[in-house]
């Protein structure tokens, strides 16, 4: 149990996907303008990360390892994630229209999100068991959601602040991201 908690915290805070691994930066800047959108994107990424981790664990341990083709894992993971997103999108569209509308374009966009590919590769690399990879995927997803929500909250306020003209928009967002990243270094000794 302790190990699972340390994996969760390690993924969510210490080795946060956005702020210390620098993965999934495109949605971090692209979708962090509005709090609602950031929340939807974060939830969608968490969901896909979790599902992708479970499916790729089975594929890796029951197909790739027995046939000795581990080196093919990147390309297979990409295919798996892409089709998984397709199925999830279809399922949400047909069962819960409101949720589908809230997630909108962000669900298909996750196909190309490197954080999702990242979590599956990290799980394989660390040789996690099924439960461990599920927990690490949840941790990674929630860490991503957390950072995205913080960033969008700050950016919503920045929009109304008196920022020097040359710094307006993306430049000040980059500086904010840098400061946030520094803050997250404070979690460094935790796990």
């Amino acid at each position: 149990m302790n190990e699972l908690i340390s994996i969760f915290i390690g993924m969510a805070l210490v080795n946060n996907f956005v702020l210390s691994r620098f993965l999934g930066l495109c949605p971090f800047f692209g979708v962090s303008k509005k709090l609602d959108n950031a929340l939807s994107m974060g939830i969608a990424v968490t969901l896909v990360m979790f599902l992708a981790s479970v499916v790729t664990w089975f594929i890796y341990h029951h197909i790739l390892v027995p046939f000795n083709v581990e080196y093919m894992k990147i390309i297979i993971y990409i295919v798996v994630i892409a089709s998984l997103v397709q199925i999830v999108e279809m399922a949400i569209k047909r069962t819960n229209v409101t949720l589908y509308n809230a997630l909108g374009i962000y669900l298909p966009l996750i196909t190309t999100n490197c954080a999702v590919l990242g979590i599956t590769l990290i799980n394989t690399q660390e040789d996690f068991s099924l439960i461990q990879s599920m927990v690490s995927a949840l941790g990674g997803g929630i860490g991503f959601l957390f950072v995205l929500v913080i960033m969008s909250g700050i950016r919503e306020r920045l929009e109304l602040s008196d920022v020097p003209k040359s710094m307006k928009g993306l430049p000040i967002a980059f500086i904010t991201a840098m400061l946030l990243s520094l803050t997250f270094f404070g979690f460094g000794g935790m796990v």
């Binding site: 594929i59 046939f67 297979i76 295919v79 798996v80 089709s83 279809m90 047909r94």
Partner: peptide
């Protein structure tokens, strides 16, 4: 084997998507 596995997984996932389209309401 690599080619076979990759093709197999591709076909499997494709079939899964079609199946999902049929099964889901």
């Amino acid at each position: 084997t690599t080619i076979l596995i990759l093709t197999g997984i591709g076909c499997l996932l494709g079939a899964l998507i079609i199946l999902a389209g049929k099964v889901l309401p």
